[in-house]
Nucleic acid binder design. Structure first.
Lengths: 195, 195
DNA sequence: TCTCCACTTGAACGATCGTTCTATTCTCCA
DNA sequence: TGGAGAATAGAACGATCGTTCAAGTGGAGA
């Protein structure tokens, strides 16, 4: 499967713009300009227009962030350190990009959840996959499955909400605060299990 | 201080529309129509236009949600039940409104943080007040101040992120999951303090 | 060499955006 | 009762929105 360089440029430019300006705040002309293509090319590769392009953005960015989370959790010395490192990594990335949102998906979710079902469905798939990947790793560390799922949902939500706070304050501190809390929460469940 | 009924109608209509469609997804014509006024009246009460109106929305909605959180935390039998009740209340409100976002502020924050500093500042004030109100109540229950602040930040972030998940899945479950996790986290800190 | 089609180009379409404007009506105190 | 300012009304402005379209370009197979 050969993927066009032009289509990739459009996709990547759109991701960057959505992170900064959101779905409704990004125009097709912005995308054309940032990807250094033309309107015709964008509609050649994404014939149904902005919504189709956005679905592809979600399908492209979702697994990308998931693999980052998985790697951080799997490579850490222990699970609680892995949990903290997720927030730490998010905080560093945010600060490095002048508080550009590292993840465009949560923003799209809030903007279009009410009126664009096909985008909402695509995002639901991504969120579910993130939760499941996290839940599996918590359960593998012998946290009860139901508790692990609650914590996994809490992690995904607090990452998304943490971006909102960190961007608003232009500070990495909120994400690090959340990282400490979540590390403590996971730690307390591991101890409970150990008794 | 007498507040015009028209200005209040505009404000309330704008809050409702922002909750459903976000900042960029809501047009001034939508606001005119929903508030049953005219463009002239909107610009009479908010001469600087949409941005000024949005600042007033933030200043109006922020304390409203804060007082709900404060009441729920203060009226509960104990702190951990109060923490859970915050998420429970959010979940019920969300479900009752057909998964209309209970809070428009987080959405605005993500949409405009990069390009509208005065809106970002107004939201930062609101978020800080929420965190402080929550942190005080955790600290009053003898949780260490630094830990209390981490947890307070985590609560605000997970509420905002929880709305995103719940709206996307059209389900109250994510908020209840997060409520259980946060109740457990606060409980574990109270026990630690008790030893 | 010719043909064909994926791909590119950018002007143009109608709709809608935030905002402004002039005109009119209401309200309330001198 | 009359006058002034607050409030309402809605048409209109230029800009920009997502999208469409006709015209071209370029390279690979016959």
């Amino acid at each position: 499967m050969k993927t066009s360089t032009t289509a990739e440029a459009i996709l990547n430019a759109t991701i960057d713009l959505f992170r900064e300006l959101g779905f409704n705040g990004t125009s097709m002309r912005d995308i054309v300009k940032a990807s250094k293509t033309t309107a015709g090319s964008v509609y050649h590769f994404f014939p149904s227009g902005k919504d189709e392009l956005t679905v592809e953005v979600i399908k492209h960015a979702g697994p990308m962030y998931q693999s980052i989370i998985e790697t951080l959790l799997d490579d850490a010395a222990d699970l609680t350190e892995g949990v903290y490192s997720v927030y730490e990594q998010a905080a560093y990335t945010l600060a490095d990009t002048n508080y550009l949102d590292p993840c465009p998906i949560g923003g799209i979710a809030r903007e279009v959840a009410s009126i664009k079902p096909e985008l909402r469905f695509a995002i639901a798939v991504v969120f579910s996959a993130w939760v499941q990947a996290t839940q599996e790793r918590l359960a593998n560390a012998r946290i009860e499955p139901e508790v692990a799922e609650d914590i996994a949902v809490t992690m995904v939500a607090s990452i998304e909400g943490g971006f909102t706070l960190a961007r608003t304050h232009r500070s990495a501190e909120p994400l690090l605060s959340i990282g400490r809390s979540m590390q403590s929460l996971v730690g307390s469940q591991l101890i409970r299990q150990g008794c």
